[in-house]
Structures are given as C-alpha cells and as structure tokens.
Amino acid sequence: MKDTISSTFILLLALTIIAAFLALNVSAEIMATAVVTLALIKFWLVAFQFMELKKAHPFWKYLILGFGGLMGIILVILL
C-alpha cells in the first residue's frame, strides 16, 4: 500500500519552504498570486489527504474546493 500520507507531508513541507522563498525573492505582483496559489494547494492537500475528504461524498469535496477557490480569487483581486 502506498504511503500517501507521508508523501503528502513531504509535499506540504516543500510547498511551505517554496512559499517562504518566493515571499523574500519575487516581485510583489507575481508573489501575491504565487503565494495564494501555494497556500490553496496546501489547504486542499490537508483537506483531501489528511482529513480524508477524498473518500467523502462529492458534495463535501466541491464545498471545500469552492470555498478555497473563492477565497483565493478574492485575495488575489484584493492584494
């Protein structure tokens, strides 16, 4: 059986370090979109893999995808 929890965790750590690096080294215009996108990927990884939403009814999956997507779009517009 593949250990998806461990691989998800390694991916989450990598994305956290990449986000911190981008925040320090990239221009403000690109940075906002990049950091919000990375945050959303991490948000969905935790929800789907750690909280096992991948096994849930599509209603719960679309709700978390919709919430994250809406937050991301509004944040990018505002920032």
Binding site: A19, A23, V35, V36, L38, A39, K42, M71, L75
Partner: peptide
C-alpha cells in the same frame, strides 16, 4: 493557519 499565515506574514 494555512490561510492566515500567508496573508499576515507574507503578502503585505
């Protein structure tokens, strides 16, 4: 925290 951290610490 994954939503809070970037907005407070990284984006402004």
């Amino acid at each position: 925290w994954l939503l809070l951290f970037p907005v407070l610490y990284l984006l402004f």
